[in-house]
Amino acid sequence: MSSTAEDGLRILVCVKRVPAPGARIALTADRNDIDTRNLGFTTSPHEECAVEEAIRLVEHHGGSSTVMTVGPPEADEQLRYALSVGAGGAVLVTTEGTDPDAQATAKVLVAAIEALEADGGPFDLILFGNESADAGGFQVGIRTARALGRPVVNGIKAIEVAEGRVVARRESPEGYEVYRLDLPAVLGVKEGLNLPRYPTLPGRLRSKKADVPRQPALVVAGGLATLDFRLPSEQVTETTVLGDGPDAAAAVADLLQELGLL
């Protein structure tokens, strides 16, 4: 039974810790990984919007939001960020060594979700990002939903919950498409769904003290295995400096005319 009407919505959000490269990606010497020594970490913007949406839905309907990740112990940082903006709870399923593939990740998530649901009842809504920022597999949410036997639609940019159902919109070339799913349901969302809030000072303090339980993942590798990485060949561009400051306006207008744009 879904708990929608009386006790609000029980929502789970799945996020992934990824490095945040700037102007270019640097690889490790063996090219097996991104060189993260000088990088911060984050989650995909899609997933930040998923967290924000869960918080808003709970603010509106009551209930609870939980954030979960499968990752290294350091992924604690991304979960605490989600807590600092208002997520209710967090679960870290720890892995060792290389990033599990999509099949393995989905299986770990399914096991963890089933365990959480055995204790606390089913999640009305499970939110994923449309795709992870780094692996870009476009599939972990779909695999997880299939395994749980729940309806799932990816690419969602607007969500409304009412009367045990979720109405979700996705962009199309002409406008948008509307999907209507009975709860419990799963959605993969895209940035633009909302404007995520920033953490508040009390939020940060709360998130520092929060208990983030950890459990080890049982990883069963799937059929797609990463060997190494390569940077796409970058064509070197000779930059023509048209000038400095407002004096360059004539040169810019010349360029526009030359390109037939003026």
């Binding site: 930059t239 400096v241 048209l242 400095d244 407002p246 360059a248 306006a249």
Partner: peptide, 23 residues
């Protein structure tokens, strides 16, 4: 800038109005 074909160096707040009026 280093990856662009063309660049104008300076404060966009003064450059853009100048470009707009020239155009």
């Amino acid at each position: 800038v280093t990856k662009a074909d063309y660049a104008v160096i300076g404060d966009l707040h003064t450059i853009l109005p100048a470009v707009v009026s020239e155009v």
